[in-house]
């Protein structure tokens, strides 16, 4: 860890003003917001992130941690803690997939600390990224190469990869956000904006170091989930190498609007297998208007991974990803949902 200046945010406006700075991306900016710190401090200790200044946004918690549910949908403040949201009765009842995705992430201690805003901005677990003694990592050091492509890449992505980076997006909650048509409210020194969650993360392409469309100084204030008929019949299935406290090898979000065994509408997102939170429109299209059975589920899974590209260590991932999606689809169809 290197020396840094620490300050506590006074209010939202001064926080974003203070954090606005020239940098090639928000995540590499020399000024960083400190929320739960479970990603940021970790990466600072291992010298991957080297901010010069931290602005602690926890003083804004009161105004930015609201959890509210009404007819228009669900609002979650960006500073709400993972555990608070996961166990909130409205969330558990109306959006079970959100609650599950949060409960299955990290550990109880981390969930008590970590915020939703920090959660969606958590960084890849690519071991070459996380250890600065590996010189080649385009995400850490643009243009230096990628150690993982021909290295150890069991945990790496098979969807959305580029020649420059194949790192998987590790988070669980973001899969629920992207599946459920969520939007993100953002405050910035140049004004506030609201974007679909699907516009927040960027594919690695040839700039894997630019992970989101946030500018330096922009602060996520809130997530909004619209009310939708498929929200209640939803689930998160996380397949991993141990029972708890582990990132997904493959995961799936499915939210289903089912009428008489026929798919009226459906939302599908895939975790552990893609470079960004990944909604699979191809899989959704394969099911919309069709009965949901084993063979249809299999076809949707095929469609979901049709463009998958593997790198040796992760050759098994398309097959596991398909199995995960099929299992999730069949399980969600069987759910008993009270209206």
């Amino acid at each position: 860890m290197r020396p840094f200046a620490y300050e506590r945010a006074g209010d939202l406006v001064s926080a974003v003003t203070a954090a606005t700075i020239e940098a090639d991306s928000q995540i590499r900016a020399p000024i960083q917001f400190l929320a739960g710190g479970t990603t940021l401090l970790d990466l600072m200790k291992i010298d991957v992130m080297r901010p010069e200044r931290l602005i602690d946004i926890n003083p804004l918690e009161k105004s930015l941690s609201e959890i509210s549910f009404d007819r228009s949908g669900l609002r979650l403040g960006a500073l709400a803690r993972m555990s608070a949201v996961a166990h909130h009765p409205d969330v558990e009842r109306e959006y079970p997939v959100i609650s599950q995705a949060l409960k299955l992430g990290a550990s109880a201690q981390l969930r008590n600390m970590a915020t939703l805003g920090g959660n969606v901005l958590q960084r890849t677990r690519c071991p070459y990224f996380r250890d600065v003694s590996w010189h080649a990592c385009n995400k850490r050091d643009p243009g230096s190469g990628c150690s993982a492509r021909q290295g150890l890449n069991r945990n790496h992505a098979v969807l959305g990869t580029s020649d420059h980076c194949i790192a998987a997006y590790p988070g669980d909650f973001a899969q629920a956000l992207i599946a459920l048509d969520a939007t993100v409210s953002i405050a910035g020194s140049k004004g506030d904006r609201r974007i679909p969650f699907s516009d927040l993360h960027r594919l690695p392409a040839d700039t894997p170091h630019i992970e989101t469309t946030l500018s330096p100084g922009e602060l996520i204030t809130e997530f909004h989930f619209p009310a939708r008929p498929w929200a209640r019949r939803s689930l998160y299935l996380k397949v991993r190498d141990r029972e708890s406290y582990e990132f997904a090898v493959a995961s799936a979000v499915v939210a289903l609007d089912l009428a008489d065994g026929v798919v009226r509408d459906i939302r599908i997102a895939l975790g552990g297998v893609a470079t960004v939170p990944w909604r699979s429109l191809a899989a959704e299209d394969a099911l919309r208007g069709k009965p949901l059975d084993e063979s249809r589920a299999g076809m949707a899974a095929e469609a979901a991974f049709a463009t998958a590209k593997t790198f040796g260590g992760n050759d098994f991932k398309p097959e596991l990803g398909r199995a995960t999606l099929v299992r999730a689809l069949l399980a969600v169809a069987m759910l008993e949902v009270r209206s």
């Binding site: 071991p127 070459y128 250890d131 029972e243 406290y245 582990e246």
Partner: peptide, 16 residues
């Protein structure tokens, strides 16, 4: 070595 910490070097947790 690549997975040199307890996040990446896997051991069972209580739930296992």
């Amino acid at each position: 070595y690549v997975n040199k910490d307890l996040a990446d070097y896997m051991i069972p947790v209580n739930a296992d």
